[in-house]
Design a protein around this nucleic acid. Sequence first.
DNA 1: CCGATTTACTAAACCGGTTGCGTAATCATG
DNA 2: CATGATTACGCAACCGGTTTAGTAAATCGG
Lengths: 344, 344
Amino acid sequence: MSQSEQATTIREIAALAGVSGGTVSRVMNEKPGVGPETRARIKALIAEHDFHGDATARQLSRGRSDSLGIVFPLQVSEVVMHPVYPELLGAISDAAQDAGYDVILFTTNASRGVEHVLDSVKRKRVDGLILPAASSDDPLIAQVESTGTPTVLIGHRQRARRITWVDCTHDEALYAMTTSLLLAGRRALTLFNGPKRISAYDLRAQGFWRAIREFGDPAVRANEKVFDMGFVGGVEATETLLREVPATDAIVCSADITAAGVLDALARSGFAVPGDIAVTGFDDIDFASHSTPTLSTVRMPLHETGATAVSLLLEMLGGGLTTPEPRILETTLVERESTGSVTP
Amino acid sequence: MSQSEQATTIREIAALAGVSGGTVSRVMNEKPGVGPETRARIKALIAEHDFHGDATARQLSRGRSDSLGIVFPLQVSEVVMHPVYPELLGAISDAAQDAGYDVILFTTNASRGVEHVLDSVKRKRVDGLILPAASSDDPLIAQVESTGTPTVLIGHRQRARRITWVDCTHDEALYAMTTSLLLAGRRALTLFNGPKRISAYDLRAQGFWRAIREFGDPAVRANEKVFDMGFVGGVEATETLLREVPATDAIVCSADITAAGVLDALARSGFAVPGDIAVTGFDDIDFASHSTPTLSTVRMPLHETGATAVSLLLEMLGGGLTTPEPRILETTLVERESTGSVTP
DNA sequence: CCGATTTACTAAACCGGTTGCGTAATCATG
DNA sequence: CATGATTACGCAACCGGTTTAGTAAATCGG
């Protein structure tokens, strides 16, 4: 029981137990071929010396690192401050560690590009890779693919390539949200959207326009403004919109933070929400449930997304998944005061 | 130039170059003892075959993992959603990778405790550890210390133990903020603070009370309410406070998110900010510069904190730092409309 | 009771870089 | 030209688990 000074190698434990290193290895990995009393004796010694083995040596001999890499871009305006990343990262980290994998975090910035990630892949520091929110033109995707490393993309439907990805129903969400607004009598809708090269924004626009189309009322007026989703962008776009389309009675935003700017601008201009104009967001950040009025929005299945990505990657690593298997998870509509669905 | 199929081992490159493995190793590490023309020939072969070496083998022979661990708690109410973590993590990741280290992310949750971290340390998966925001009673600190692994704490001044830490001037910030309010004529101040076991909240309270004390005006009334910092907590505490201390003319919050709740509650109750009551926050989250009125707050040197922690850890790893060397970095006061320092 | 199988375990060769030691060749010096 | 110092490398032993081939003993069947 006394935690003696810890032994350093498997052979030291072996010597103490009067066996060879291979036997200790078998005991540590719960493999057969060791007698019960020998096994017990070795286990006692392992516990006594607080022996844990050397991860690096194990990795070398087994030919795998038992860790997976996750690549996050820093200081990319579209992506960085996005509030979904911490939760996504947490989910991935959780799932990976529960499966016995370590998570190596790669970040890129202006001075340090993706070369470092590729280098680590080639040096076999990671067995697989998870890439959140790569835009369609991200060169990293092609480069990673060429290395043959098992990879799962998150938030981008890379149909052209043979890569597995996980995404959620951005399109369905905005279809449902827009339809809900139309059914509530709104007839002059504007979509505030981010650049289409980000797959999520593209899909959201598709859902918006499909709802308009399928509703089929010629009295409906809809248009779309594309700019960088952010608070200030929301403010400016709203001021412009109120001038250009005074009849506007609904503003659909592709991001809560932009909707926050919209609410702010509307309040300053004396418009009532949802009385005069309905406003919707996307992401369900903290602000959405705290604003005045509270914001109707869309919640993404972030935890499930992370867990699914890890799960798919582990399947690929285990060889059980050879063809790309994309997954699309369900978003949740959260209707609050800003669309009049809930009264204050 | 043609990127042939990539060679797998250093000895294969050696065979192609007609030299021994050791020579290739020396070339890859830019070590002396290799003639210029041999070096050039080997470099050409390395480039041609896109050879990068095996990180694990290198780690094993060098006895170090060239990676450092960072431990983040998940689902700990006080800590989790705190908006400073992403930026801190980004800074740490950036600094570590720039120094050639990989970052292994450890997260703990209800079912998976710190054992996994300790195990990884003992198995030498990481050379050092960075622990953000461990509270004073965190058992991980003592356990990590007993393993002798180089460790840097962030956000907690662990004076009792021989551990290096990095923190910022929470106390000075609130001293300055409170003094500023007093000089502006506020006389009935309340501090909304989090639990003292979190070092940051303890220090902020100290700064607040020192400012009151040193101002020395017996007409000043000050008190402190402790609860979990959050939006809802801010709303509730404000409603209670307005009932109990109607004369209140300043609410100092230890977190922006709580200040958001305060602003919300004050607006509903018809109080003008800063006209009737001044409000201040802490953290400078996005909300602070977008709220109505904009929020006076304190900005922590997050990037510098992360970079400093990595820098200290690397010094320890290099053996250049044997005694604990704490660092306290400067916070920045950001005065905006909610204290009347800036007019809308 | 003997040959055949199973079990328990050892020895040693891996995994793929790194590095100290040894040696032959080159160079400097007197 | 002899001697000592340097340089350029090869060789092989590491680092510490893992794993396969092989051996001795134990078990089993008939």
